[in-house]
């Protein structure tokens, strides 16, 4: 296996096979769902928010390994964090979490979770990294 294969297995597949924070919340303060029409990936995120913090977050949905793994990583990252800190997460942060090189098409898969988070919690519906476009 190549180095890319190894990285893919270690980073992506671990989260894809054993997703953290997968599921739904009983009484969420906020629910948001988004999709990538290009490939049909779909992610829903449920949030419990109090004292300016993301107390709990769960994701559900379906799609390729990259969209689902990045959702798992993102949820793990943001749970318990203050809203203003979470708001600063950028596309670079997500790519760093994924840790493998991706072409522009798969980038959308990787960013779907962050897009869902930003649209749901902050009302920012653009693709992360394309806010000014």
């Amino acid at each position: 296996m190549s180095e890319w294969d190894e990285l893919f297995r270690e980073n992506i597949l671990d989260h894809y096979r054993n997703p953290r924070n997968r599921g739904v919340l009983e009484h969420p303060d906020l629910t948001y769902e988004d999709a990538n029409p290009l490939c049909g990936d779909r992610i829903r995120m449920d949030f419990k928010i109090s004292d300016g913090r993301i107390e709990e977050v769960r994701f559900s949905g379906h799609g390729c390994s990259i969209s689902q793994a990045s959702a798992s990583m993102l949820c793990e990252e943001i749970e318990g964090k203050p809203l203003d800190e979470v708001k600063k997460l950028s596309r670079e942060d997500v790519l760093e979490m994924l840790g493998i090189e991706l072409g522009p098409v798969r980038l959308k898969c990787a960013l779907l979770a962050l897009k869902t988070l930003k649209a749901g919690v902050y009302g920012l519906p653009q693709w992360p990294g394309e806010e000014d476009a």
Binding site: S2, W4, D5, F8, C39, G63, C64, S65, I66, G103, R106, C109
Partner: peptide
């Protein structure tokens, strides 16, 4: 068990 996009991504390598 493998999404077609993942298939195409690995093949592209």
């Amino acid at each position: 068990g493998v999404h077609p996009h993942d298939v195409a991504t690995v093949l592209d390598r």
